[in-house]
Computed example of a mutant assay.
Amino acid sequence: MSLPAHPEHRHPFLYRSIVLPVLALLRMGASPQKLAWSIALGLVVGVNPLLGSTTLLCLGLALLFRLNLPASQLANHLMYPVEVVLLFPFLKFGAFVFQTGPIPLAPKVLFAEVRSHPWTLIKSVWLWEWHALAMWAIAGAILLPLIAAILTPVLRRMLVRAEAHHAALATPISTF
């Protein structure tokens, strides 16, 4: 005879880590629209190509626009692996659009540049970074409202389902 599953282990990890916290925020009174904008902000800021800046940037923007801090930070931190993956495409696309020349990504070339022209390399890296940030800002300006528009009806449906489920649990079962 097997024991019943512990309540925390009934759902997959991602459900427990993402869906349940969002449902908890909805139940605490966060509107679906404000929560959608909070999550969208976290998702967009979370892929910004300036590594190490996302937490503070997301926090500042969420405070500025009076969004839900836990939701924006949850989405922001979930995007870290995507941020790392998108770093080089943002750098390359920025270099392409602004015609700043190729980025020396090969270790031999990079170390040769460090040894022979360190100050020039530092200036170039900052230039590539600013161009990558410009590409991210343009993409973010387009994606942020799009993501929020997609998430708002999804979160509304989640709230309705959660309220219906809660009401069903609260209704006493009649016995014959």
Results as ranks from 00 to 15, higher is better:
Ser2Val: 11
Leu3Met: 10
His6Tyr: 07
His6Trp: 13
His6Cys: 07
Pro7Thr: 02
His9Gly: 06
Tyr15Asp: 04
Arg16Tyr: 03
Val19Glu: 10
Leu26Ala: 07
Arg27His: 09
Arg27Phe: 00
Gly29Val: 08
Ala30Phe: 07
Ala30Ile: 08
Ser31Asp: 15
Ser31Trp: 05
Ser31Thr: 15
Pro32Gln: 06
Gln33Arg: 15
Gln33Ser: 15
Lys34Ile: 10
Leu35Tyr: 02
Trp37Thr: 07
Ser38Lys: 05
Ser38Leu: 05
Ile39Glu: 09
Gly42Arg: 04
Gly42Asp: 10
Leu43Lys: 04
Leu43Ala: 15
Leu51Gly: 04
Gly52Arg: 02
Ser53Asn: 02
Ser53Glu: 10
Thr54Val: 05
Leu56Asp: 09
Leu57Ala: 10
Leu59Ala: 11
Gly60Leu: 14
Leu61Gly: 07
Leu61Glu: 11
Leu63Arg: 14
Leu64Thr: 11
Phe65Ser: 01
Phe65Tyr: 12
Arg66Pro: 11
Leu67Thr: 08
Asn68Gln: 12
Pro70Phe: 00
Ala71Pro: 12
Ser72Tyr: 06
Ser72Val: 05
Leu74Arg: 03
Met79Trp: 05
Tyr80Lys: 10
Pro81Lys: 06
Pro81Gln: 07
Val82Met: 11
Glu83Asp: 13
Val85Asn: 02
Leu86Ile: 08
Phe90Tyr: 08
Leu91Ala: 00
Lys92Asp: 06
Phe93His: 09
Phe93Thr: 15
Ala95Pro: 10
Phe98Trp: 06
Phe98Asp: 02
Gln99Gly: 13
Thr100Lys: 03
Pro102Met: 10
Leu105Trp: 04
Pro107Arg: 01
Val109Trp: 05
Leu110Gln: 07
Phe111Cys: 01
Phe111Gly: 01
Glu113Leu: 12
Pro118Tyr: 00
Thr120Ile: 08
Thr120Gln: 13
Ser124Leu: 05
Leu127Arg: 00
Glu129Ile: 06
Glu129Cys: 11
Trp130Val: 11
Ala132Tyr: 04
Leu133Trp: 00
Ala134His: 00
Gly140Arg: 02
Ala141Met: 12
Ile142Pro: 14
Ile142Tyr: 08
Leu143Asn: 09
Pro145Cys: 04
Leu146Val: 15
Ile147Phe: 13
Leu151Tyr: 04
Thr152Gln: 15
Thr152Val: 03
Pro153His: 01
Val154Thr: 11
Val154Trp: 10
Leu155Ile: 05
Met158Lys: 11
Val160His: 11
Arg161Ile: 07
Ala162Pro: 08
Glu163Ser: 11
Ala164Phe: 00
His166Tyr: 00
Ala167Arg: 13
Ala167Leu: 09
Ala168Trp: 01
Leu169Ser: 09
Ala170Tyr: 00
Thr171Arg: 14
Pro172Val: 01
Phe176Cys: 09
